Computed example of a mutant assay.
Amino acid sequence: MIFRKGELFNGPGGLSLGAKMANVVADDGEVFKIQHVWSNDYDINACKTFAHNICGNEDDNSVHCCPVDSLPIGDRTVLPEIDCFAFGFPCNDYSQVGEKKGLEGTFGPLYSYGVKVLKEYRPKFFVAENVGGLQSANEGKAFIKILKELTKPNGDNGDLEYVVTPNLYKFEEYGVPQARHRIIIVGIRKDLAEEGIVYRVPAPTTANPLDYVTSRDAICNPPIAEDALNNERTKHKNHVVEMLNHIPAGENAWYIGLPEKYQLQVRGARLSSIYKRLDPNKPAYTVTGSGGGGTHMYHWEEPRALTNRERARLQTFPDDFVFVGNKEAVRKQVGMAVPPKGAKIVFDAILKSFAGVDYDYVEPTAKLQLDVLLANI
């Protein structure tokens, strides 16, 4: 069985690469896979990256580069029929870093276009992704509103309903060499759930911290070729190089042993990621896609920022995955993406649910379930 997939806010293709890699064989030999049909993003570089790697052609016309509010959702001549849907709706207004405007921000309400896709196409399942801060935006009201609309896209009087399973995935527990914690919401159409197709959160593959994939493992094994794509190094000022030489692995710009002449004169909040060097024996801290000086992630041994290819390794993109754009555009794409390895685990679990294949699972994060949230209002 092949599930035809549509996607909004496609970014460089982390979710789609995970979906593309997912492959499940049922007991009777039937193969369950996911196939890209159409997608959308407003970022031209991300669209070209997605098209090049997911579609095999940088100018593939199935990738629609435009603001989502100008996308003709429901027009089958432009956006054909689909069986499943994915959307990592913009996290800017839900992130713990920033103003946290939630639904009142520019990006917060964009999830509603995903709800519109559910109304128009009634896919068999969907996958939505966002940052952990989503649960606390607008004093928790935003998350409740989003879950309600994903559960019943047409409202209480509509005939379309999904069995929704939100969960906070700690990707380092799933073999990703990075402490990246994201809410992923999986929805199975209720009529199918009533027939026995039930999604369960896949059990962590590396639950023991001693088994976590480390920064060193990801970046050095195997070594990255010197001429690898997207592997340009940043040229630092001598002052920055000297400062980094005084910061041990795992420490940041606020390291107590840093000589006074290298100490930053900053008042107020001090972000822990400023000039933070990786600990080679642990997963990396969260890869981000934006931020000024001091936020580029720093090598544990060499006094420099990571290259985009090294960041891509931490995000589990293969070395032959080509990012299109200048260095900053690529940095943004890498940081905003869903780790493909983590996405594959989720899509594999969904396909196993449809194929009737057993797998190890855990209970979803209790405090994220809609009935629990409503009971605590």
Score class of each variant (00 low, 15 high):
Met1Asp: 14
Met1Cys: 10
Ala19Val: 06
Met21Pro: 00
Met21Gly: 02
Ala26Ile: 09
Val31Thr: 15
Ile34His: 00
Ser39Gly: 11
Ala46Glu: 04
Lys48Val: 04
Lys48Phe: 00
Thr49Asn: 07
Asn53Glu: 14
Asn53Arg: 13
Ile54Glu: 04
Cys55Thr: 08
Asn57Phe: 09
His64Tyr: 11
His64Gly: 08
Cys65Ala: 03
Ser70Pro: 03
Leu71Lys: 02
Leu71Gly: 09
Val78Gln: 11
Phe85Asn: 00
Phe85Cys: 05
Phe85Ile: 08
Gly88Thr: 09
Pro90Asn: 11
Val97Gly: 12
Glu99Val: 14
Leu103Ile: 13
Pro109Phe: 15
Leu110His: 04
Ser112Trp: 14
Leu118Asn: 02
Leu118Pro: 10
Tyr121Leu: 08
Arg122Phe: 06
Arg122Ile: 10
Lys124Leu: 15
Lys124Phe: 10
Val127Lys: 01
Val131Met: 06
Leu134Cys: 12
Gln135Gly: 13
Ala137Asp: 04
Ala137Tyr: 05
Asn138Tyr: 13
Asn138Thr: 14
Gly140Ile: 05
Ile144Gly: 04
Ile144Cys: 09
Lys145Arg: 14
Leu147Asn: 02
Glu149Thr: 10
Glu149Ser: 13
Asp156Pro: 14
Asn157Arg: 13
Gly158Asn: 03
Val163Trp: 00
Val163Met: 09
Val163His: 07
Thr165Ser: 05
Pro166Leu: 05
Leu168Lys: 08
Glu172Thr: 03
Glu173Pro: 03
Pro177Ala: 03
Gln178Ile: 12
Ile185Leu: 06
Gly187Cys: 06
Ile188Gln: 01
Ile188Ala: 00
Ala193Lys: 03
Glu195Pro: 01
Tyr199Trp: 07
Arg200Ala: 10
Pro204Gly: 05
Thr205Val: 02
Asp211Gly: 14
Ser215Gln: 06
Arg216Pro: 07
Asp217Glu: 09
Ala225Ser: 13
Glu226Cys: 02
Glu232Leu: 12
Val240Lys: 04
Val241Met: 09
Glu242Tyr: 14
His246Ala: 13
Ala249Glu: 14
Gly257Pro: 11
Leu258Val: 00
Lys261Val: 01
Tyr262Ile: 11
Val266Arg: 12
Arg267Lys: 03
Ser272Val: 06
Ser272Pro: 11
Tyr285Thr: 12
Gly293Tyr: 12
Gly294Arg: 04
Thr295Trp: 09
Thr295Asn: 15
Thr295Met: 15
His296Pro: 07
Leu306Pro: 05
Thr307Val: 03
Arg309Asn: 03
Ala312Thr: 13
Phe317Gln: 00
Phe317Tyr: 15
Asp319Phe: 08
Phe321Gln: 02
Phe321Pro: 04
Val322Tyr: 07
Phe323Leu: 06
Val324Leu: 02
Val324Asp: 02
Gly325Arg: 05
Lys327Gln: 14
Val330Thr: 10
Lys332Gly: 03
Met336Thr: 10
Ala337Pro: 14
Ala337Asp: 10
Lys341Ala: 07
Ala343Glu: 01
Ile350Gln: 06
Lys352Ala: 05
Tyr361Pro: 03
Tyr361Met: 01
Tyr361Val: 03
Glu363Ile: 10
Pro364Lys: 12
Pro364His: 09
Pro364Glu: 01
Thr365Gln: 06
Lys367Met: 11
Leu370Thr: 01
Val372Phe: 09
